[in-house]
């Protein structure tokens, strides 16, 4: 359990572009983006909707492949890897937190949290133990056997955060993690993420359109039309 207190992992994009074909027209979601997020830092990505901030986030999370350019995770080039190898990197080094939580329905909190470990073939008992540790760290020890439908939005997002962290990833990517929450819950979630970062030391990259949320990061990157237009690099 050494890497439970890992150091975070750096992410590097070199001249990354991403084109989409929509109804015969080509749309450029990312245009020649180059950036390097040092290990352990907390960055935020801001911009209007359609500016490419989400595409950039999922590019770093290996859920998108660049049309051109390179994506490096912890010194390893990933854009040329096979789907299965990219899945392995997602599984071991990256945790996702989504705006709409993306928990598997009719599956308990505990089972949702241990799911990533299932794909690492971690034995049942160890999976349970580690998932319980994470659930207690997000303050949901008493909700282990609740289904997502029995939890509030804030609680569901806590479960999602526990799931993102159960594999001790070097990077956590959060896409509008407070977008579906009320002000109080939003504050809780952000504070929870920051608190967990002091324990787990992951690199945190967070997409938001809320200036208050963005301002808590060490660095803000502003995107417009798929290009970086602000934020010192």
């Amino acid at each position: 359990m050494d890497d439970l207190h890992g150091k975070g992992v750096n992410v590097e994009l070199k001249n990354v572009s991403r084109l989409f074909q929509i109804g015969g027209e080509t749309f450029q979601a990312l245009a020649d983006v180059t950036l390097s997020v040092p290990a352990g830092e907390h960055w935020s990505l801001v911009g209007a909707s359609g500016s490419g901030k989400s595409t950039l986030l999922y590019m770093m999370g290996l859920l998108e492949r660049p049309s051109s350019g390179e994506v490096w995770i912890d010194g390893q080039r990933t854009d040329t890897l096979k789907t299965g190898e990219r899945a392995l990197i997602r599984n071991r080094r990256i945790g996702f937190v989504f705006q709409n939580f993306q928990l598997i329905p009719r599956t308990t909190s505990l089972e949702n949290v241990e799911m990533p470990l299932l794909y690492q073939k971690v034995p049942f008992r160890e999976r349970q133990e580690r998932a319980k540790v994470l659930l207690s760290q997000v303050g949901l020890s008493d909700r282990e056997n609740h289904f997502p439908s029995q939890l509030s939005g804030g609680q569901q997002q806590r479960v999602a955060i526990a799931r993102a962290l159960v594999t001790s990833p070097g990077i956590v990517l959060a896409d509008e993690p407070t977008g579906n929450l009320d002000t109080a819950s939003s504050k809780d979630i952000l504070e929870l993420l920051e608190h967990l970062r002091t324990i787990h030391r992951f690199t945190l990259i967070l997409v938001t359109h809320d200036p208050l949320v963005a301002s808590r990061a060490q660095r803000q990157i502003r995107l417009s039309d798929g290009r970086i237009v602000g934020g010192e690099l």
């Binding site: 999370g61 392995l88 997602r90 993306q102 329905p105 794909y119």
Partner: peptide, 16 residues
């Protein structure tokens, strides 16, 4: 479909 997407995001390989 969404469940499959979630599983892929958290690291399920095509074989899984």
């Amino acid at each position: 479909t969404r469940e499959i997407g979630i599983r892929m995001a958290i690291g399920a390989r095509p074989g899984d």
